[in-house]
């Protein structure tokens, strides 16, 4: 089947989509957007997190056809024109990235958290990120990165 949707602000149209495949597969294999990762394909790791019409979802659990006409933002769509998004920069600087396979999912989930809650407590951070598994870091530096990002975004807002 044919699938049309908007991904990271660009209209996308792909043909030959198999009805049973996931949005994750479409993004990775048909739209050349492999930033969303394929770690479990059962919604248990968060590595494939994207925004679907503004909602944070696991793209592995969205049937391709369900994304018809949808507005999708992936990790590839978060960086700013002049460089990394402050969340991305914070993840690098805090040491929250090791192998990096979980990182795109954490970045998108953190983005979702901070747009809803600009100044989350540690437990709010942990509850919001409980759907994202990381096997390398033990999460300590991920929490640090989220806090660092929150502070920098707050500073940006104050300077704006």
């Amino acid at each position: 089947m044919r699938l049309k949707c908007t991904v990271n602000g660009e209209a996308q149209e792909v043909d030959g989509v198999w009805e049973g495949e996931s949005l994750l597969y479409v993004l990775r294999e048909r739209m050349a957007l492999p930033g969303s990762k394929n770690a479990c394909e059962q919604g248990e790791c968060g590595s494939c997190s994207v925004y679907l019409n503004g909602n944070l979802v696991c793209s592995c659990l969205v049937a391709a056809g369900q994304a018809e006409g949808a507005d999708i933002t992936t990790v590839e769509g978060l960086a700013r024109e002049d460089g990394l998004h402050p969340i991305q920069r914070a993840f690098v600087e805090a040491g929250a990235v090791q192998c990096g396979f979980c990182t795109p999912g954490f970045v998108v989930a953190t983005h979702d958290l901070l747009r809803r809650n600009a100044d989350p407590s540690e437990m709010e951070i942990r509850e919001a990120l409980a759907g994202n598994l990381c096997r390398c870091t033990g999460y300590t530096k991920i929490v640090d990165a989220v806090r660092l990002a929150a502070e920098r975004l707050e500073l940006e807002r104050r300077q704006a």
């Binding site: 909602n55 979802v57 696991c58 969205v62 919001a128 759907g131």
Partner: peptide
Amino acid sequence: VGSPQIRNR
């Protein structure tokens, strides 16, 4: 239920 991502869907 699951995670924030799952609860959204």
